[in-house]
């Protein structure tokens, strides 16, 4: 078996060996004796536990972020008086995503998945769904490995960093990973899982990284619940048998090209977009003193 670098190879390896994505991914990691199944499962378990801890701490904290401009949004959402138009699980996902993101801004312990700025997306979708639909720990670990494999294949084409690819490469990749994890837990087949990732990714192309004051705060915190729900749409479509007309690998190619075409002013340099708005400039004067 050759090392898998594309979704296409992943699909055919799964089909040929009649295995799921996480099983194929574990075989692939173990090639050349690099990472045994035990090593990968152990890291997944550690990361999963840390994700749960971050949510738990984030849910009960209103401590302001470092800059002092955020930290109470998870609390506000939890105590909202408005009748929700989302179902119970989707609501929980938003709350968990905010809880994790706000923990990150407080210098709390989180899991970069794939990055710190996008740390709320995969855990919120994975853990809220698992809780509400009775997915046991083993199933959660398999879903996290499915997410990790999705991110790994994307990262083969482009580094998952806002400075290189904009936010499409951070929160966008995280959303594709969350979609894959969710579709796995919902019993989707290999094709549906890959399609859910492709659909999620396709709809974040061109997403810029223009953080206000250069901090992982505005728009990053609230982008986490947005991109978590984005993963739900992708999974819902894929589970209905709707496919991405552009195959997953080509979507990744488009993402790489889009990242290159994007101005450096919109890639984590805080020299354009939201970072250069009037309000952002005023905040900058107050915060970065």
């Amino acid at each position: 078996m050759e090392k898998i670098t594309t979704f296409r190879q992943l699909y055919y390896a799964c089909k040929e060996n009649k295995k799921s994505i996480y099983e194929t991914a574990l075989d692939n990691e173990a090639l050349n004796g690099e990472n045994s199944e035990y090593t990968v499962r152990l890291q997944a378990k550690k990361s999963l536990d840390a994700m749960k801890e971050a949510i738990k701490s984030g849910l009960v904290s209103t401590e302001p972020s470092f800059s002092g401009i955020s930290g109470d949004e998870c609390y506000k959402l939890q105590t909202s008086k408005a009748e929700s138009i989302l179902g119970k699980t989707a609501q929980k996902i938003m709350i968990y995503a905010l809880a994790t993101s706000e923990q990150n801004l407080r210098m709390g312990r989180i899991v970069a998945c794939p990055t710190a700025g996008s740390c709320g997306i995969v855990p919120s979708v994975l853990i809220a769904y698992a809780e509400d639909y009775g997915i046991k720990e083993d199933g959660q670990i398999n879903a996290l490995i499915t997410a990790g494999e999705t991110g790994r294949i994307i990262s083969n084409k482009m580094p998952l960093s806002g400075a290189v690819g904009g936010c499409q490469a951070e929160c966008g990749a995280a959303s594709a990973m969350a979609a894959a994890a969710l579709t796995q837990m919902r019993g989707g087949d290999v094709k549906q899982i890959i399609n859910s990732a492709a659909l999620a990714l396709k709809n974040v192309l061109g997403l810029t990284c223009d953080p206000v004051c250069g901090l992982v705060e505005i728009p990053c915190i609230k982008r986490n619940p947005f991109m978590a729900l984005h993963a739900l749409t992708a999974s819902e479509l894929a589970m209905a048998g709707i496919i991405s007309k552009i195959p997953a690998d080509e979507v990744v190619d488009a993402m790489e090209q889009t990242g290159k075409l994007m101005s450096p002013l919109l890639k984590e340099s805080s020299q354009g977009g939201l970072a250069k708005t009037k309000t952002a400039m005023a905040l900058e004067k107050n915060i970065l003193k």
């Binding site: 990361s47 801004l105 210098m107 899991v111 794939p114 995969v122 998952l160 992982v216």
Partner: peptide, 14 residues
């Protein structure tokens, strides 16, 4: 990269 790089590190933010 490996899956373990993608789903880690566990770190103090942000």
């Amino acid at each position: 990269s490996s899956i373990t790089d993608i789903i880690s590190p566990i770190m103090a933010g942000p």
